[in-house]
Simulated scan of single mutants.
Amino acid sequence: MSSDRTASHLARNLAALRHARTLTQQELARAAAVPRSTIANLESGEGNPSLAVLVKVAGALSVPIDELLAAPRALVRHWPADAIAPRHKGRGVQVRDLVPEPVPDEMMELMDFEPGAVMGGTPHLPGTREFFTCLDGRVILMVAGDRYELAPGEVLAFPGNLPHSYQNADALQRARGVSVVVLAKAGV
């Protein structure tokens, strides 16, 4: 592969990955610990980055280096249901990743509750925000001692660093919800 084509692939892939993560060039440069002009040069196809720069930029985007340099291809991947293994996190609660690829600064999980199941939440760093959406059944969330009962379609947002727990409010039927945790940036 010629170096011109490699630079073109890098420029296209870098811009697409940055836009998909809604990052400015300055934000990506800060996360990668490189000057903003380096990102601009790479996205213009004019850059000739060192391996160290590629490692930093790939790390900041949470992708392997080969994804930055890859030739155009459809970014499609199919996971069969059995390939996304559920984790048991509490008595009668199964949790599995909603999105099986890493998403920077977020955790997204599908939670299935057996009748009456209870699960304690894991407190996160201060500044973390958690959103729980009830999909089926009724789920009770306890947040810092306060009780919230959610019906299908209802969402509760709360600081993820507070003590919290989840419970299926129904002793006879299953419940299901989605948890999205927007993680605080360390040191911010």
Rank of each mutant, 00 (worst) to 15 (best):
M1K: 09
S2I: 10
S2P: 14
S3H: 11
D4P: 11
R5G: 02
S8I: 09
A11Q: 00
R12D: 10
R18F: 15
A20D: 15
A20H: 06
T22K: 15
T22A: 15
T22C: 09
Q25T: 08
Q26K: 13
Q26H: 06
L28T: 00
L28P: 00
A29W: 13
R30P: 00
A32M: 12
A33M: 11
V34T: 04
P35S: 14
P35G: 14
R36W: 05
S37W: 07
S37D: 07
T38S: 11
A40Y: 11
L42F: 10
E43W: 13
S44W: 06
G45A: 11
G45R: 05
E46W: 04
E46P: 00
G47I: 07
N48S: 15
V53F: 05
V53I: 15
K56S: 12
V57Y: 10
A60P: 08
A60N: 12
L61Q: 01
L61W: 02
L61S: 03
P64V: 01
P64L: 00
I65F: 01
I65E: 09
I65K: 00
I65N: 04
D66E: 12
E67P: 11
E67N: 11
L69Y: 08
A70S: 14
R73Y: 12
A74N: 14
A74W: 08
L75N: 15
V76T: 13
V76Q: 14
P80W: 04
D82W: 05
I84A: 03
I84P: 13
P86H: 03
P86G: 00
R87A: 04
H88P: 01
H88T: 15
H88E: 11
V93C: 03
Q94K: 14
V95H: 01
R96P: 00
R96K: 15
D97Y: 09
L98P: 08
L98E: 00
V99N: 13
V99I: 15
V103C: 06
V103M: 14
V103A: 14
P104T: 07
E106D: 02
E106P: 01
M107F: 13
E109N: 13
L110H: 12
D112S: 13
D112C: 06
P115Q: 04
P115W: 01
G116Y: 01
A117N: 04
V118N: 02
V118W: 09
V118T: 10
V118C: 02
G121N: 08
P123F: 08
L125Q: 08
P126Y: 07
P126R: 06
G127A: 06
T128K: 03
T133C: 12
C134P: 04
C134N: 03
L135R: 08
G137C: 01
G145E: 06
Y148W: 15
Y148H: 15
P152Y: 05
G153F: 04
E154W: 15
V155Q: 04
L156Q: 02
P159Q: 06
G160N: 01
L162R: 09
L162P: 00
P163Y: 11
H164D: 02
H164P: 04
Y166D: 01
N168E: 09
A169W: 01
A169R: 06
A169M: 02
A171T: 09
R174P: 05
R174Y: 07
A175Q: 02
R176G: 03
G177V: 03
G177L: 11
V178S: 04
S179L: 13
V180F: 06
V181A: 10
V182A: 12
L183N: 01
K185L: 10
A186S: 07
A186D: 10
A186K: 13
G187E: 10
